[in-house]
Each structure stands twice: as structure tokens, then as C-alpha cells.
């Protein structure tokens, strides 16, 4: 008689500063599959985890933003290669959320391709968004895009494609981020974090939290060391609350919009988290 093998369940933790801690609060919440069955427990992050995430993101910012764009592009492309290697796992996780096989496969493929698309932007943004300005005087005058700093991201419910579509544009230009994953479907986010952790991406560039958006987002929105917010996954009420809180230190806020994550993303998300720096210098002997 054969005994059925007992599966080893995966513990889903947070991803902060390159490490995988549990929530400092010790809390977790139940994630169900598409049929309402138990899937896993996810960490339920607290405001202190938000704080730790921001600290890690800030710490990583100088180094990450100082990398050459080519290097950032290479690192992101390497992440895509590793995602490709985990295709099956992501497909399975998406199916757990209730997607059919084809839909899940398509979303994974789309997500990897999206990541590759953004990877290529690293060393092109300055050429496309910058400008040499013809001023009326003996001055060299150049405008270049620069990362704004730490971006707080409220990820949408599209658990993988939506997630990569908000992370990649934030970090490709040199920002670091603290991401609140989809509340009902956070597991692919943690799997993505495992990919990031084993890639060349420096710890702290992406910090992933799972938990209740309504609880976590306002802490990100009011944190004075956060420079920008992507509210992609915020509800209307949460958006208003976060936008108000973000006003305190004049965060750049990207409001949620009707998003078809499979559509061409354009430059909007990248531009939202870029500053334009203009440098003047006299031209003379």
C-alpha cells in the first residue's frame, strides 16, 4: 500500500532589502485559490514593514541610480532570463488564482516580454526624454532625465503582468521601490521576489510587501522619504486618501487608470518617476 506523499508547503514571506523576513507584526493572512480553497498563508505586512522597506529602498538608491544605464539594462534582462526559466512555476501559480491554462501561459509570456521591453529602455531614456536646449546666449544647456528616488507602488490585481508592468518602469531608470502586491493574489509577487533575490539586482532596489492595501498604502503615501507613488492598484477611496497624504511632501503621484496590461505601455509610467535636470554652463575661452 502506498502512502500519498505529503507536500512541502511554501512559506511566503516579505522581501525587504534583499532578505525574506516575516512581517515584524507576526501576522499572516489566508490566500485562497480561484475556487475559494486554501492556497497559502501570506505575510500580512505592517506599517513597520513599510518603514523598513522604505529604509532599504533609500539605502539602495544611490548605488542603483549610479549604475550605468547599460548595467541596469543588463541586470533587468538577466531577470527576464530567469523568469523564462521559471515559466512553469508562474503558470501554475497563475492557474491557482483561477486562470485557465492558456490565459495563464499568455500572461506569463507577456510578463516576461514586458520585462525585456523595459530592460531595453535603460540606455535610451535620456536620448528620448532629454534635450539639448538652444538658449539665446553663450551657454551649453542640457536637460536629462533622472530618477526621482524611492517610489511607493500599489500594485494592481493583475498578479504577474500588472506587477511587472509597475515595477520595471520604476526601477529601470534608477529608482528603487517599495511595492504592495495584489492583495488577493500576492503569491506570484513573492515568487518574483525570489527571482529578483537570486538575480544581480542589488538588494533593496525592489522591496515587496504583501498584506492589506488599505492598511499599508497610506503609510507609504505619508512617508516623507518616499518621493513618488504609483497608485495603480488603489481603489477610488484609497486613491483620494493617498493623494492627500502624498501632498505633504509633494510626492509625484500616478493615479490609477483603466489599464489593459496587455496594451503597449508607452512611456507614461517611466516618465512619471523621472525628474528633468537642466544643466547650464557658459561657453567661453
Amino acid at each position: 500500500m502506498s502512502t500519498e506523499r505529503l507536500t512541502v508547503r511554501k512559506t511566503y514571506k516579505l522581501y525587504i532589502g534583499g532578505a525574506f523576513p516575516r512581517s515584524e507584526s507576526g501576522r499572516s493572512y489566508v490566500i485562497n485559490d480561484g475556487q475559494g480553497g486554501f492556497l497559502a498563508n501570506a505575510s500580512r505586512a505592517s506599517r513597520k514593514d513599510v518603514r523598513d522597506g522604505v529604509t532599504a529602498a533609500r539605502k539602495a538608491f544611490p548605488g542603483w541610480s549610479a549604475r550605468t544605464p547599460y548595467n541596469r539594462g543588463q541586470i533587468l534582462y538577466r531577470v527576464a532570463e530567469m523568469l523564462e526559466g521559471r515559466r512553469a512555476q508562474f503558470v501554475a501559480e497563475l492557474r491557482d488564482t483561477g486562470l485557465g491554462k492558456n490565459a495563464a501561459t499568455e500572461e506569463v509570456d507577456e510578463a516576461i516580454d514586458r520585462w525585456v521591453w523595459y530592460a531595453g529602455w535603460a540606455d535610451k531614456l535620456a536620448a528620448v526624454l532629454g534635450s539639448a536646449n538652444p538658449v539665446a546666449g553663450p551657454f551649453f544647456n542640457l536637460s536629462t532625465p533622472e530618477p526621482t528616488g524611492v517610489v511607493g507602488v500599489i500594485a494592481p490585481d493583475s498578479p504577474l503582468l500588472g506587477l511587472v508592468s509597475v515595477i520595471a518602469p520604476a526601477i529601470i531608470s534608477g529608482n528603487t521601490c517599495v511595492v504592495v502586491a495584489s492583495e488577493p493574489a500576492p503569491l506570484p509577487a513573492i515568487t518574483l521576489a525570489e527571482v529578483l533575490a537570486t538575480s544581480d539586482l542589488p538588494g533593496g532596489v525592489v522591496n515587496l510587501l504583501t498584506g492589506h492595501r488599505a492598511e499599508l498604502a497610506p503609510w507609504l503615501a505619508s512617508h516623507l522619504d518616499v518621493n513618488a507613488l504609483d497608485l495603480a492598484g488603489a481603489s477610488a477611496d484609497l486613491t483620494v486618501e493617498c493623494e492627500r497624504a502624498a501632498a505633504e511632501n509633494l510626492k509625484r503621484v500616478l493615479r490609477p487608470a483603466e489599464s489593459d496590461w496587455t496594451a503597449d505601455p508607452g512611456l507614461t509610467r517611466m516618465k512619471a518617476f523621472l525628474e528633468t535636470k537642466t544643466i547650464w554652463h557658459p561657453i567661453g575661452l
Binding site: 536646449n133 546666449g137 544647456n141 544643466i279 547650464w280
Partner: peptide, 18 residues
């Protein structure tokens, strides 16, 4: 900073973002 003036200061031009 959004504008860095090197060896000059408070120069402005309509063609230059501020």
C-alpha cells in the same frame, strides 16, 4: 535639483526647462 547652474547663476531662457 531641477536646474544646475555651473559657473553661472540665475540664467533663464524659454528654451530651457525649469
Amino acid at each position: 535639483a531641477g536646474v544646475v547652474w555651473a559657473n553661472t547663476f540665475n540664467t533663464f531662457d524659454p528654451a530651457s526647462p525649469f
